[in-house]
């Protein structure tokens, strides 16, 4: 579908590019908290422990330039937002003092996902409606340290996910 000419679609992209930048800023803020309070700052110091952990990762290959497909890319972004929205519960348990920032992040992610869903419907694309409550099981860890390292990698993976999603949305502005 010819997208870039559509005025509403451009406004949707402008708005949600800014929204994604906001979410990335909030995730970076949480990463700084994990570094400052838990002294977990560098990924390459935690690779060994990561092998013992089962950390959710959300696929985004439909959003990469080579295999770019708008409809499935949107759906993968929404699916990923849902996975990371659920695993933020892990972060909330780790950083009780920052529950507000985590809640803001979850609200923003839910809004971004429903903004994308609304836009897909406006474009006549097929969409998935998720139940409001996220039933995915919250991951458990065999030790407090594993829980902390798990939290570190959830944020690192989510930041990478957002960078890819951001590039996909920016790519759409030029289509």
């Amino acid at each position: 579908t010819e997208l870039s000419g559509d005025q509403d679609f451009q406004l949707f992209l402008q708005r949600n590019l800014e929204f994604t930048r906001k979410i990335r800023g909030d995730v970076a803020a949480l990463q700084r908290v994990v570094c400052d309070t838990l002294q977990l700052c560098k990924e390459d110091e935690l690779l060994l422990v990561r092998q013992e952990l089962d950390i959710a990762q959300a696929p985004l290959e439909q959003c990469h330039r080579r295999t770019f497909q708008a409809e499935t890319c949107f759906s993968q972004i929404r699916a990923g937002l849902r996975i990371y929205g659920g695993s933020l519960a892990t972060i909330q348990a780790l950083l009780p003092g920052h529950a507000g920032l985590v809640e803001t992040l979850q609200l923003d992610m839910a809004n971004l996902s429903s903004n994308i869903q609304q836009q897909m419907e406006d474009l006549g694309l097929a969409t998935v409606t998720y139940p409001p409550e996220n039933q995915d099981p919250v991951p458990t860890f065999s030790s407090h340290f594993h829980h902390q390292v798990g939290g570190f990698f959830i944020l690192a993976n989510f930041q990478r996910f957002l960078e890819t999603a951001y590039r996909a949305l920016r790519h759409l502005t030029s289509l």
Binding site: L46, L47, V49, F145
Partner: peptide, 18 residues
């Protein structure tokens, strides 16, 4: 303070316990 136990692995220092 947080006291980390580390081991050498592939030439890097890995934090494995705290």
């Amino acid at each position: 303070a947080r006291l980390f136990c580390c081991v050498e692995w592939n030439g890097t220092k890995q934090r494995v316990g705290v």
